[in-house]
Design a protein around this nucleic acid. Structure first.
Length: 421
RNA sequence: GCGGGCGUCGCCAAGUGGUUAAGGCAGCGGCUUGUGGCGCCGCUAUUCGGGGGUUCGAAUCCCCUCGCUCGCCCCA
């Protein structure tokens, strides 16, 4: 048993998995570049009040999931539980809001003090996109298409886009009172949790997994019937645009966001392969947030992808390209020194070279060369040093184990030519 | 925060109260003082997540604790 281990819910990303992360990150970066979306990096630590106000005091995230502490200057600090609040804070602080529309992406660790389970950790990673200053519903469609195409092009199968509208704040207030009076008729059978939701955040009850509540809701009022004309129009347009983009979607009238500043578009991309945490990407419009955090009223939409969930879905679908071109087999005092220099020269010539520093028997080194999945073994021992050459041997050509190519030791170019041809 | 399952070597895993804790994979060494994916031989857990207790005796029983996992809540 090791003396130390990671804190609960904190996970090491090991060398055998980092290449998958890098592969997704690189792909995403290019994807965003093509869409004119620029990266923003904000601190992991912010004042607690930012999240209290930005996420909302009635949410679980704020009430029981934040990693908060008081620093040496008596400030209450919190490790960010999500990315949006920090991005908005930065936009306001740096005066970017007044510089016209902003298309931004971010990536990095988030922290929530929750009980870990499949697809959920206390430190997890999100990849997110936010658009500011774009009020047209076309932007909602564009934003969704960027998420959808990213996931599809990464090779995800079996994902579903669900969309809904929350209308305006006024739409929702009208609906909310109707929903509450409908639910109150049945509330004598509600448990404590549902009662609290009814009081604080009744729309959340819509996506309850409880069978009885689902049944009660079947006959209940629907938000879509309480939308004003322009809200309805927006939602219909969104559907038209998505169809025009050939992005399949289903309407899920029970898809809600619990926070007050959300409005109009809400969407999720889900997969059946994630256990009970089925959402791999979630987002929507939150036109009220910038103002709520002290900026001027600004249209805002965004989404976030859970990297761990994405990687679960991607498992084994990304080929590992991090195999060496050359495995450098070497033995003998002079030869080992030559090998060290040779490895460096070949690396400077852009080849991936794995240098065997074990000094063990050639048979052992060849065994390792084989397992490294290198295409070539480059051999240098006493004989070669004396002749001033090295021996290049294909590890892929299994039939001709013995076929060796001798090359002058200083002829790096010939080695590179053979290996890259 | 609530409920279920689990925790023996880097990984998989046998063992369910009694002398030295199987086996497989990986690793290392050798057969082969210099040529790979096979084979054979050898080495690799004073110790069973941690602590305490019961017992003549515990990996095996009890308590506590840490962690993992599945579900609820919630969310990416």
């Amino acid at each position: 048993m090791a003396d130390f281990q990671t804190l609960r819910g904190m996970v090491d990303i090991l060398p055998s998995e980092t290449w998958q992360w890098q592969s997704v990150e690189t792909f995403a970066r290019h994807h965003f570049e093509r869409a004119g979306i620029n990266e923003i990096r904000t601190p992991l630590l912010e004042t607690t009040e930012l999240f209290n106000r930005g996420i909302g005091g009635s949410t679980d995230v704020v009430n029981k999931e934040m990693y908060s502490f008081v620093d040496r200057g008596d400030r209450s600090c919190t490790l960010r539980p999500e990315g949006t609040a920090s991005v908005v804070r930065s936009l306001i602080q740096n005066g970017l809001i007044s510089q016209g529309p902003q298309r931004l992406w971010y990536q990095g660790p988030m922290f929530r003090y929750e009980r870990p389970q499949a697809g959920r950790q206390r430190q997890f990673h999100q990849l997110g996109v936010e658009f500011f200053g774009l009020s047209s519903i076309k932007s909602d469609a564009e934003l969704i298409s960027i998420a959808w195409d990213l996931l599809k092009q990464l090779g995800l199968k079996g994902i579903t886009l669900q969309v809904n509208t929350l209308g305006t704040l006024e739409d929702r207030q009208k609906y909310r009172s109707q929903l509450v009076s409908w639910l109150e008729k049945y509330s004598k059978n509600f448990d404590e949790h549902t009662m609290n939701q009814l009081k604080n955040n009744p729309l959340r009850i819509l996506d309850s997994k409880d069978k009885n509540i689902k049944k009660i809701l079947e006959g209940g009022p629907m938000l879509i019937d309480y939308l004003c004309e322009s809200s309805k129009r927006r939602f219909i347009n969104l559907q038209e645009f998505l169809s025009e983009l050939d992005i399949p979607f289903t309407i899920n009238p029970k898809l809600v966001r619990g926070l007050d500043y959300y409005c109009h578009t809400a969407f999720e991309i889900t997969s059946g392969e994630l256990g009970s945490q089925s959402t791999v990407c979630g987002g929507g419009r939150y036109d009220g947030l910038v103002q709520q955090l002290g900026g001027s009223a600004t249209s805002s939409i965004g989404w976030a992808i859970g990297m761990e969930r994405l990687l679960i879905l991607l498992a084994n679908k990304i080929p590992n390209q991090n195999t060496p071109d050359i495995y450098l087999v070497n033995k003998g005092e002079k030869a080992e020194l030559e090998a060290l220099c040779l490895a460096r020269s070949l690396r400077l010539a852009n080849l991936k070279v794995e240098l065997d520093n074990s000094g063990s028997a050639f048979s052992k080194q060849f065994k390792r060369a084989s397992r490294s999945h290198a295409s070539w073994a480059l051999v240098i021992g006493e004989e070669e040093v004396n002749k001033g050459e090295v021996v290049l041997k294909s590890l892929i050509d299994k039939e001709n184990f013995g076929s060796n190519i001798s090359i002058n030791i200083s002829n790096i170019k010939e080695i590179v030519d053979i290996v890259t041809s």
